[in-house]
Amino acid sequence: MAHTFTYPRDVKTVYYFGTCLVDMSFPQAGMAGIHLLRRAGVEVVFPQEQSCCGQPAYNSGFLEEARAVARAQIKAFSKADWPIVVPSGSCAGMMRHHYPEMFANDPEYFDVRKFSERIFELGDFLHNALHVQYKDKGKPVKVTWHSSCHAMREMGATAAAKALIGQLSNVELVEIEREYECCGFGGTFSIKQPEISAAMVADKVEDIRSTGASAILSGDCGCLMNIGGAMERAGVPVAPRHLAEFIWERING
């Protein structure tokens, strides 16, 4: 899959697609993303008719339901052709790469493709389109990082995230072993194959624990909910944090 995107220049306004999970469970992470975009001098527009990218149904074999929900998103973001920034690599990958696949044999294919080309992952957009610079005001801290599989393999967003973390002078980033490996979330996979998913997240938690970091950062709330829930259950004292929320706190002291 293509990792090299053409980034827009002189961005004045962007749309924000918050994702269903952020909407329900991590709205502060969503707000932090909006704050970071506004801080970079960009106006952020949030269509109220947005909901979910459709990935849960798409990955579960319910293509028609996924397409219906996808159409609703395309419509919600149709009033202007601004870039659409998404605080999740997984949802961004869905909208960037899989929407055109879902509509490959439909008359709206070319419109869908135009929509998809406007999709960017938040950290990637901040770094590569807006070239943000951050000054760390927080205390020294050791953190580690987990890329969602789709942030890494569909959106190529890992390097940008690490570059942003690297701008924070008091933050030490320790990489985890087998960083490239899935945390075991996989949406409905964690429900359909709970034992395998549990084994995967247990290993991930162990790798995180052994870094000695006090926080695990990620650009994807799905992974954070999975890893965070497992760490909490296992009593591992590492805080799961969305990258945007973490950066917003650090630069505001």
Binding site: G18, V22, D23, M24, S25, F26, P27, Q28, G30, M31, F46, Q48, P194, A198, V201, A202, M225, N226, G229, A230, E232, R233, A234
Partner: peptide, 14 residues
Amino acid sequence: SVRTAPRFAPKSLH
């Protein structure tokens, strides 16, 4: 079975 239950925010991002 191996995680705490998901939490839901009192106010949505919307």
